[in-house]
Design a protein around this nucleic acid. Structure first.
Lengths: 139, 139
DNA sequence: TGACAAATGAGAATGAATATCATATAATAA
DNA sequence: TTATTATATGATATTCATTCTCATTTGTCA
């Protein structure tokens, strides 16, 4: 639990812990100035394995990483692609359900898909027509 | 909602609907004999868009697809990689939580990670030592 | 039967993630 | 300090799932 951490790994961790959002490896790479690609991926692996960050597949092509804070679920807008955090903790119920099947839950993730508030609004306003298909929420 | 479907798309749908499990595009490709790669991927896209099947990212490198039946969550064993279906429907609660944030949920997915029953057993038996690191559950 | 749209497949292209490997850096021993 | 060893790093090559291209085929309907 208290392994030592290289400076670069710490930098990567800081990039994530300093902001409350989900970043792709590429985005992290850009923000962790001067650190090579392989090193960033390795750091992300170490941090994921040591339980400090979490790797999520939100349906996008590339995985995103987030610093582990409070329990929350993710909402991905099918129209604009924005990702929102939704405060809700159903982990207890998930743990129970899995326990009934004989499995021990370490952690769980919930991803909801649908139309985000911003898109609903712009669809009303603009009459379902176009409008910029991306840009709300996320970070 | 009632678009027509090409023979190949129907074949892909059948491959999925005939078995109660999650298959990668590659596995589907192997079972949909004689259909080309691009066609299988296109069929999977169509079926996903029309809501007949679902594309899931269970943390593996490649996505898996499943025919939509009853609501259930997924349990992925961190040790052996097996995927189990867990009967539990928390979609109502998820929908409510998202609604509070102003979003409209279309569908949601839950993935729990941890140690599966089979692995717990073999770890006890074999004293936490090796043992075949894969092979339980899934399909 | 003609004409246009959609589907198909072989293969090229893309791109995220991983592997390789020689070098650099840190940790420990003597 | 100096030797010894393990680990970290980064440039680059590689892998591999997925998507794209485009010429050809098939389906649909007037």
């Amino acid at each position: 639990m208290s392994e030592r951490m290289s400076a670069h790994t710490r930098t990567v961790l800081n990039v994530l812990s300093e902001r409350r959002c989900h970043l792709t490896a590429e985005e992290i790479l850009a923000r962790a100035d001067g650190i090579g690609t392989a090193t960033v991926y390795r750091a992300l692996d170490h941090l994921t394995e040591s339980g400090r960050i979490r790797r999520l597949s939100l349906g996008k092509k590339s995985a995103v990483y987030e610093y582990i804070r409070d329990a929350h679920m993710h909402f991905v807008c099918s129209r604009c692609g924005a990702v929102y955090d939704i405060q809700a903790d159903l982990s207890g119920m998930i743990r129970e359900a899995a326990k009934c099947s004989g499995h021990q839950v370490d952690w769980s993730e919930i991803t909801a898909h649908g139309l985000c508030g911003a898109c609903m609004l712009s669809m009303e306003t603009e009459g379902t027509l176009c409008g910029n298909p991306a840009g709300h929420g996320d970070a």
